[in-house]
Nucleic acid binder design. Structure first.
Lengths: 216, 216
DNA sequence: CTGGATCCGGGAAGATACTG
DNA sequence: CAGTATCTTCCCGGATCCAG
């Protein structure tokens, strides 16, 4: 992006991250952890490969990301955020919060990835049974999803892990998923609209926002 | 800007405010209050007039700003933020905070406006004499500046007011101003580099960050 | 397969002139 | 003062191709 040529903190920030796609790349790396080039492409439907390559070059020279050659069996270069890049988390969070009221019904050509929802999810889930042993609830699947871990009253949302099998696996249409966790749709309505819980219903119930459990 | 077509809170936010110049227009309206078209142009050096007009149309239809016809003696249309527009304050604040480390020396063709600095200034000033009567310190001048009000331990930064004469008026080269308030430059060095205080030196001293007063 | 590079068309941004 | 009109430039998007 052309510089604004303004001696202003925000203008200089936008000189680095105001380009199209840049903050969405940060979103991907924040929610997914270090990624390979093709992982980023999958999480950024619509981006042209040359544009992604160009953005990554710019972000690397700005000190936002680093590339790490991974030895076999991975044998690929992983792209991860630097500390400075992770500091953009607060910017991403505020944009996400401001955009929340815009999450009306998806249009026909809107794409959706479950892991996009994992940042807001952090603040929407709770641990309804803090005295029980920890549980893992998977939203989506291994290829696009995230794990919600409830443990001792704390809730954590992470990229899917293969280390521990989830206690419950949940799938739902995008809008149902969003409406359920933002409290706009009761669980039993969600069930009628395509929400499916595989495994422990109690585990899923445990992480649902207050007032939305025990509705069926 | 083209839509990202992603059912994601942040992507939808960027569909509305990710365009070039849009967030800088919000910065102007946040720091200056309701403005006329030409005021915005002065605060956004480098923007083309057609582009500003187009952005304002987009922002109006997105519900971020409103236009208000002002009766004489003003006799102009004022552009102000709606509540939704003001909610972007948190986004602007986080971008400004993230960009703070980028405020190294201005380059030769960097523009500067004192009022751009008024947002960070809020968190940098203090009231060093909370028991004294309120004082007003003006940075810059009526045409580009802001008033720092210290009163009962509280600090407020506002657009220049004609209602009350400032107790002190301060001018300094951009980098000196920034370095002084961020604590990187002691007051006496600032004096040798072009900082001028007109009026009550005590009033100015009162608002300087802790550790930076009493240096001369 | 991964991680790009290259080419091209369309549209957004920039510069400038002009107007009610 | 508050824009519009016009022209140019360049970034973005889409497709294709390619080396390891």
């Amino acid at each position: 992006m052309r510089s604004y040529n303004q001696y202003c903190s925000m203008a200089r920030a936008l000189d680095l991250v105001g380009d199209r796609w840049t903050l969405l790349i940060v979103r991907e790396l924040l929610t997914q952890g270090p990624c390979r080039f093709s992982d980023l492409r999958r999480g950024l439907p619509g981006i042209a490969s040359n544009l992604l390559a160009e953005r990554l070059r710019e972000m690397e020279s700005a000190g936002l990301i680093i590339r790490r050659e991974e030895p076999p069996p991975v044998a690929a270069t992983l792209i991860g955020l630097t500390g400075r890049g992770q500091d953009l988390g607060s910017v991403v969070r505020e944009l996400t919060r401001w955009g929340a009221p815009l999450m009306t019904a998806p249009s026909a050509d809107d794409e959706f990835r479950v892991h996009w929802f994992s940042l807001p999810l952090r603040h929407l889930c709770r641990d309804g049974s803090p005295d029980e042993p920890a549980v893992v609830v998977r939203l989506g699947d291994l290829y696009d999803g995230c794990d919600v871990i409830a443990d001792h009253g704390r809730v954590d949302v992470r990229p899917c892990s293969t280390e521990r099998q989830p206690d419950a696996t949940v799938t739902a249409p995008p809008q149902v998923l969003v409406a359920l966790f933002t409290g706009l749709m009761p669980l039993r309505t969600a069930r009628t609209k395509g929400l499916v819980v595989d495994g422990s219903a109690a585990a899923f119930d445990r992480i649902l926002p207050k007032g939305e459990q025990n509705h069926d």
